[in-house]
Design a protein around this nucleic acid. Structure first.
Lengths: 211, 211
DNA sequence: GTGCTTAGTTATCAACCGATCACTTAATGG
DNA sequence: CCATTAAGTGATCGGTTGATAACTAAGCAC
């Protein structure tokens, strides 16, 4: 396979793995297995695990900004931009792991290499909202806060508990007003081995991943 | 030292360490060193690293709920409850690591042991807002979203960049309307070594194979 | 068919991490 | 004085993990 194609495949799988297990928790071996190559080849391609993660973060941010800019450019819609951007954000959940990888980057601010990149990435989004989106500081704040709560719900796998508790349903419904079904169907089907301890893998109740 | 006192000390240090490095990234050795005991003693006290983290999460949630309930019970204030709870939340930053440890728990939803606990903890806060705080679903949503953005700013160590960029200052000012100074003064003074790889410094030249 | 590049592998290492076990030290109580 | 218990350590081990080095196989120009 062409190296460049292989690289894209690896990055896609790495995004999924990092999203599920976090930067520290994910292993280059897991990525290698998912991409169908040997573990040393992953290291050879990216130099270090850290570089791989940074590239995953960069890709995720690029993808996010591309989706946002498409909404700004779209002049056919009558919806307010805020709602359209929110919808675009939620739709990114279908790219499994992307938002979660970003989220994992957001808690690594203390890391001397990842921290600055994560901060810069977040500020890229903020400046986009202010400068290209025409949002006020308060509107930007509210938009980002909403997004962070969505991320938290996804990171918590709160959708796994949907239907088991009225409060959970209420919270999820207000967090994802229109797209709850999408979230539930596209949510990670629970990593096989568990995030840290390789315990049992009972398939839980049947949530067919048919989108 | 009395075992119970030692235990409290260990839990306090563990909260700091887990907040800085995350669940996977933190090591029992780091906690032991910070608490001034040997690493095997940490394991002996809590059985497993996982149990230690779960106890840290439980303590953090207890502390949060105690602070919130104190605000609800306080009838001397004329401020609206939402603002008071928000202020109480920000004040918790002074207990370094507490909010960050919670945040790290919130991205471990996929973990078969930690996930359920983290979800239950989040829902405890939600139910408190709805039932004891008298918040509507929408008010609760907005409050939690605000909190998650604050957590993200803290996790990103965005305050490290305060003063270097007008956008950063604007974002931080709208996120922490009154308490920015507190946040900045109480923020973790940046962990000594690298946050994840103790090999920080010289090597890691990470040149990805100039094939 | 030889030499060169591209795309990969196998084998292995040094370091680390959580956990276990045996041992020790200090106080307490009769 | 001695037994018991509480508090805690040193040594060490098995399993991982990221990274390195050496090797290989396919394609291809000439």
């Amino acid at each position: 396979m062409r190296a460049e194609d292989r690289r894209e495949l690896v990055l896609a799988e790495a995004t999924r793995i990092f999203g599920s297990y976090g930067y520290v928790g994910a292993t280059t071996h897991q990525v290698a297995e998912a991409a169908g190559v040997s573990q040393p080849y992953i290291v050879k391609m990216f130099g270090t695990k850290e570089n791989l993660f940074l590239e995953v973060l960069g890709r995720a941010l690029d993808c996010l900004m591309t989706a946002f800019r498409a909404e700004v450019a779209d002049e056919t819609s009558t919806q307010p931009l805020g709602a359209r951007l929110g919808l675009a954000y939620v739709n990114l959940v279908s790219q499994t792991g992307m938002l979660l990888s970003l989220m994992h980057g957001f808690v690594l601010g203390a890391d001397p290499c990842i921290g600055p990149v994560a901060r810069a990435g977040f500020m890229t989004v903020y400046r986009f909202l202010r400068e290209e989106g025409g949002f006020s500081p308060e509107e930007s704040h509210a938009f980002l806060a909403d997004g962070m709560l969505m991320n938290t719900m996804i990171g918590l796998r709160m959708t796994d508990d949907y239907g088991t508790d009225a409060s959970v349903d209420e919270l999820l419904t207000t967090t994802f007003p229109n797209k709850l079904e999408l979230i539930r169907s596209k949510a990670d089907p629970a990593p096989s081995g568990g995030a840290t301890s390789p315990a049992a893998g009972a398939p839980a109740d049947g949530t067919p991943d048919t989108a």
